[in-house]
Write a protein that binds this DNA or RNA. Structure first.
Length: 619
RNA sequence: GCGCUCAUAGCUCAGUUGGAAGAGCACCGGCCUUCUAAGCCGGCAGUCCCAGGUUCGAGUCCUGGUGGGCGCACCA
């Protein structure tokens, strides 16, 4: 019995009571079953709207008749799965016997089994490539980049969990004008590199170069001849640097490779800390030349055209921007050029059934152009390409910008998260000997365990914050709010529940109260009359909803849906733990509650793992 | 001007095959000698931006507006 099979079991009882004219099989009935808006109405509701036509009757009458049939057939009662069926307007509300629900639902979760989506999802069993993160070398990595990283990683995890084979891909911007700007700065004013955090330092040099060049440009536009000369000279030098890298002039090539590696090392640290893995890393530098060859090839084929010295393609489908430029009049390529070459490489290297690009919403037009162009180039795979757009991350004082000086770089983010959690929560534990003793036999091991916990909660805070909002909703990153440990809808609150439940199980085990292994088996029976408390029923209901929510979130590529469901589970668990004591109970009641706690903990662990958020033993 | 996107409680936001309006924060009042109070219970709070349309039924779909954000040829 899988954790998602309860609706099937209910449908098996319900379906025989339907008139044949309804034309619904067990699976169809299971599909229609949904929880009523309020728990006191029942555990599952069967909506009768769909039957109105087939049965030539009004939904409320069908619901009432159905209730009657179920009673006549003796399908209801204290022994069976369904305790009572009460028509409520067009709905037939079903109240289940909690101990039967629990026996069907909980053992599979509790023993660590996960829902099986084989063949169920719309895009199930497909090979999917998800391209995400895509940071630029020679530039800083800040909180804004975290949204893409968290989102892409969650999509990879969600798609895998729902039966897809996924290739997690990254695409690093290691060439282009930003690299030239940075390298110009390095040779012009930067001085010696520091001994550590060189990747971050490169980003600072890039920023400084940009502001110098912008200032010269502005002055030149005002008529400042000296500034104009400086600006022109710098531009000429940057072109030389870029050409030098491309044509492998040793001086430039060596400097590029060395500095590029500093950025790559920095990215490795970031991915290690965030626990994100990539199967394939593409580099802009590897699709630069192929891009230009591709332009030449499709210009000859007549797919691309020349316009004012440049080369591109007309996509009249994009009315406001029909010309998609692919080669500048100076013969060099663009971002778009490389995207085409990259797409071809993806198609040829991997036989993907679906290709997802996680890139911010400002580039929606760009990807529309890319996909249209690929199609016209003859790649049928273009219709498998999908742009997952997401909105920007802002700060409480508005958009992030280096000009405003309010950019939060990765290292600062990590340090500030840890510091905020230390002072708001962990400091209190450290200063309390009794609590500290829970964390380790001696001070050193306690501190090590706590350092790990701080990292885990930092990750939970940042990832949940980045994922809980819908993709096309802006996010305001507020360090104070995100690390606020008291209450609310946040990653730490969810992790707290995992720690709390672990603690409860530990404390019970310490006095010999452990879960009977027989209750982990399918077909286990729970004592009638257990799991009847509203908090217990409410918690089971949220567990019932989880597998469907995961399928939905995966299908729509929206992790925020899963965040909301996990939050609902955590609220239901808190209500349960507040109102239903475990430790002082015995027998069947004790066992049913231990089973519920264990199942909830496993379900939450699974859900959080799909968001890349770690589970804790203690907090 | 054209395209994309957002508008739901005082604030931040959930709410997708159309089907029974929700949460957090804030505010007010309760609950720790009891498994982690980072919690729980109760209260307060709505013209789902506006106008039409489709429908038995619209926060949800369609059309047209209003207001905010973003994007629109040699940047990435």
């Amino acid at each position: 019995m899988r954790p998602d099979a309860l609706a099937q079991e209910v449908a098996k009882v319900l379906q025989p009571a339907l008139p044949e004219a309804a034309g619904l099989d067990v699976a169809a009935v299971a599909e229609l079953l949904a929880p009523p808006p309020k728990p006191e109405m029942g555990d599952l509701a069967f909506p009768c709207f769909r039957l109105a036509k087939a049965l030539r009757n009004a939904p409320p009458k069908i619901a009432a008749a159905l209730a009657g049939t179920l009673t006549e057939q003796g399908a209801l009662g204290v022994e069976g799965l369904i305790a009572e069926a009460s028509p409520a307007g067009p709905y037939l509300n079903l109240r289940l016997n909690p101990h039967r629900t629990g026996a069907l639902l909980l053992p599979a979760w509790a023993r660590g089994e996960r829902p099986d989506y084989a063949g169920t999802a719309a895009h199930g069993d497909a090979k999917v490539m998800v391209e995400f993160s895509q940071p630029n070398t020679h530039k800083g990595f800040h909180v804004g980049h975290m949204r893409n990283l968290c989102l892409g990683d969650a999509l990879v995890r969600l798609l895998r969990a729902t039966g897809n084979e996924v290739v997690a891909a990254n695409y690093l911007g290691d060439v282009g004008t930003h690299v030239a700007k940075c390298m110009w700065g390095l040779e012009t004013f930067a001085g010696e590199p520091p001994t550590e955090h060189r990747g971050e330092w490169l980003g600072k040099i890039y920023e400084q170069s940009t502001s110098r060049l912008d200032a010269w440009k502005a002055a030149a536009d005002e008529g400042d001849e000296a500034a104009k000369a400086e600006y022109e000279a710098a531009r000429a030098r940057m072109s030389e640097i870029l050409r030098g890298i491309e044509t492998r002039v040793p001086e430039h090539r060596e400097a590029w490779e060395r500095t590029r590696q500093w950025s790559l090392d920095a990215f490795d640290e970031i991915y290690a800390w965030t626990r994100v893995d990539f199967e394939r890393v593409f580099y802009e530098s590897e699709v630069d030349e192929p891009g230009l060859k591709l332009v030449e090839e499709y210009l000859e084929k007549g797919v691309f055209i020349e316009s004012q010295g440049a080369v591109g393609i007309e996509n009249p489908e994009v009315e406001h921007m029909p010309f998609f430029m692919l080669r500048k009049s100076d013969g060099t390529g663009l971002y778009a050029t490389k995207d085409l070459a990259l797409a071809r490489m993806k198609f040829e290297e991997y036989g993907v059934d679906r290709s997802i690009y996680v890139v911010d919403a400002r580039q929606s037009d760009h990807f529309r152009q890319v996909f249209l162009t690929l199609k016209k180039m003859g790649f049928d795979q273009a219709q498998l390409c999908e742009h997952v757009a997401y909105e920007m991350v802002e700060l409480p004082d508005g958009a992030m910008s280096s000009r405003k000086g309010n950019v939060i770089l990765f290292r600062a983010l990590r340090e500030q998260l840890a510091a905020a959690l230390e002072s708001s929560h962990f400091e209190g534990i450290r200063s309390n000997p009794d609590m500290l003793a829970e964390w380790g036999a001696d001070e050193a091991s306690a501190n090590a365990a706590m350092a790990k916990a701080i990292e885990d909660v930092s990750l939970g805070a940042i990832k949940y914050g980045m994922l809980a909002r819908d993709n096309n909703q802006k996010i305001v990153f507020d360090m104070d709010k995100w690390t606020m440990v008291a209450g609310g809808d946040g990653g730490a609150a969810l992790q707290y529940v995992t720690a709390r439940s672990a603690s409860l199980l530990r404390k019970n085990a310490a006095i010999g109260k452990t879960l009977d292994p027989a209750l982990l088996e399918d077909g286990a029976t729970l004592e009638p009359g257990t799991l009847t408390e509203p908090a217990e029923r409410g918690l089971m209901q949220e567990l019932i909803n989880l597998p469907g929510t995961v399928a939905h979130a995966s299908k729509l590529l929206r992790p925020s849906l899963l965040c909301a469901q996990l939050y609902a589970i955590s609220r239901a668990y808190n209500r349960f733990q507040q109102t239903c004591n475990v430790k002082n109970q015995e027998g069947g009641l004790l066992q049913s509650r231990l089973l519920l706690v264990q199942a909830t903990r496993e379900a939450l662990s699974w859900g959080l793992s799909l968001l890349g958020i770690p589970v804790l033993e203690r907090m």
